[in-house]
Design a binder for these strands. Structure first.
Lengths: 340, 340
DNA sequence: CAAATTTATTTGCGCGCGTAAAAAATTGTT
DNA sequence: AACAATTTTTTACGCGCGCAAATAAATTTG
């Protein structure tokens, strides 16, 4: 045998029949140990690997799992995608990662491309308000889809995310204890449903406390949150230092805020000598290394990723859509650091 | 026609023959405008798309281009991958992104998987010293590979990156002008070839200046550079504030350093009232938002990504390996901010 | 050791499309 | 209108493997 190109060739080289080799590649433990040894021995010598295109053409169920996030250059989603990918690999699946990079048209293109790949399932965090809802729903009808982080009603067979209400109530409660009801700092027109929910919860919480909600909303679009936070904080601080703590909708805005405060000479921190207390949400991977380190409410990355993967795999194994839509919200954990 | 599943079905629905439809999908402009109109009209009504597995099985040359980076959760590589992906999409290719997440075994697995996909080519930033050199070289022999950012000798048909010497000489030169020859702060055993080159250049430069090189190397492995920088700086600063500026090998280490300085009450900045000047390299996406904003040498992200893509596409079109290995190094640009 | 059971082999069809060659139809040219 | 040049159709084979049914061999059981 000069050159091993097909499974036929390879089977001959092992002294085993082709269907048996096929079975082996589908599930190595499904053939007798002796046969398996023969195959794996030949595998060493010839480094043959089956043609994935021929395989996937004939299998109705691919081993591919799509991971779709709104923006991979956002460390939160990068970290999320990393954890999910690792868990999928552990389960023997082939993850394929895609990022819409903030563009809803790109999001649809990704789904189109994904559908052509006949994936076993998809784990997706949609862009949010700006997503093409109809396209997403149509996709989820054709491909088992579990949604994480950003919920869109009517899309996907299940949702796994974090409890925005709890984010806000934990951070607000802490700030109230150590200082006063905070000013809420966010983007005026956020695409992300979590951002919207957080603002709503803030208002509700202030109402409950009998305090007038005070919101500073920064205009701006896209995913340059640090820049938005920076501009907004510059604007806010030029009107004087707030007489109460500031709660940022998310850590990336808070980082921009910190940069602006630094530039303005406003000392952020929890000590009596500091000018302003600042808290935030998400526990962005870098929030421990800001100056000062951010007090923030932390996502349970691993729990969200873990349950998302488990639910998708169950759904796939089961072979039929989940009986009913189920939304799971994990509780954040307060990460007390020095900014508030 | 109840359901359009195959190209055969679709061709019938257009009133065109199957080979013509096939030709259309390969190159839409290769069929007569009238025929093209017929096909595109039917495309609207039936939203058929050819089976990618069947296509790729029969084509020797896939349109897939692999993008492989050492760690996607590092904003530098996330940004790099984003730009490269966009450029590939513009060129009509299908990018597939992979991250080794710092693990050399994973890097090899990615390449194995990639080879099975018969990609037209691959753009790769290898892990560096810890990479399985032999596996990489073997891969590059089978698949057109252009290497970017981290150079490994003997691997790939070309290299595009940034000029480490120029990084160091620009930052050092600036620090010498405004203060004094800097202390160099880096990781003791970096995997990345750029880190090694930067330290070498620093030593050479100090020699040229007739100054004793002073290096503070932090032990630590992996990709948690902020943490390493933080620990190292805590250690360094506990011995007293250096009497000269500090130059960090890269921005992520510098961010950790800044956090440590903040904790220690050491004021970093360029003003006379500050205690320490700190400069760095890379122009990490967040380095403008640190406190103080980092003075750093900036990669030309777009130039590196652009040339990498162009060279790979040329190589693919040409159909044969590049006549000779060519390494291109772009000049960094000094980003003067407030940390030094 | 024979029977029952598990596992492997043989055979052969089908997946959806690429592609080549020859024949037919369409278009452009004089 | 007649011819040449281009484009499309027809026909038919091949890609590498999944998968199913029948048969044969190996293993386990009594």
């Amino acid at each position: 045998m000069s050159q091993i190109n097909t499974m036929e060739d390879f089977a001959k080289a092992c002294g085993v029949s082709r269907p048996t080799v096929s079975k082996y590649f589908h599930d190595a433990s499904s053939v007798r140990p002796k046969t398996r040894a023969k195959i794996e021995e030949a595998l060493e010598r010839y480094d043959y690997s089956p043609n994935i295109y021929a395989i996937n053409q004939n299998r109705k169920l691919t081993k591919t799992i799509g991971i779709v996030v709104p923006h991979l250059a956002d460390p939160f989603f990068a970290e999320m995608a990393r954890v999910i990918e690792a868990k999928l690999l552990d389960a023997g699946m082939s993850p394929a990662m895609y990022s819409a990079y903030g563009d809803p048209r790109k999001e649809v293109e990704i789904l189109d491309g994904l559908r052509a790949m006949k994936p076993a399932g998809v784990l997706m965090a949609p862009l949010g308000e700006i997503s093409d809802r109809r396209a997403l729903e149509k996709f989820a009808k054709a491909v088992p889809t579990i949604v994480f982080d950003s919920r869109i009603e009517g899309f996907g067979e299940a949702f796994i995310g974090s409890d925005n209400g709890s984010f806000i109530s934990q951070t607000v409660d802490y700030l109230v204890r150590v200082a006063a009801p905070p000013l809420f700092f966010d983007m005026a027109t956020p695409a992300n449903p979590n951002a919207i929910a957080r603002r709503d919860h803030y208002v509700r919480l202030m109402d409950k406390l009998g305090v007038e909600p005070q919101i500073f909303s920064v205009s701006g679009r896209g995913w340059k949150f640090e820049e938005v936070g920076f501009r907004g904080a510059l604007d806010l601080l030029s009107q004087g230092v707030p007489d109460r703590p500031v709660l940022c909708s998310n850590d990336r805005l808070a980082m921009g805020f910190l940069a602006a405060a630094y530039e303005k000479g406003v000392r952020v921190g929890r000590l009596p000598t500091d000018d302003l207390q600042l808290a935030s949400n998400d526990d962005h991977p870098l929030s421990r290394y800001t100056c000062p380190p951010l007090t923030t409410a932390a996502h349970d990355y691993d729990a969200v990723a873990g349950l998302s993967v488990r639910m998708l795999l169950e759904r796939i194994e089961q072979g039929s859509p989940l009986r009913q839509y189920k939304a799971t919200f994990f509780q954040p954990r307060l990460a007390l650091r020095d900014s508030a």
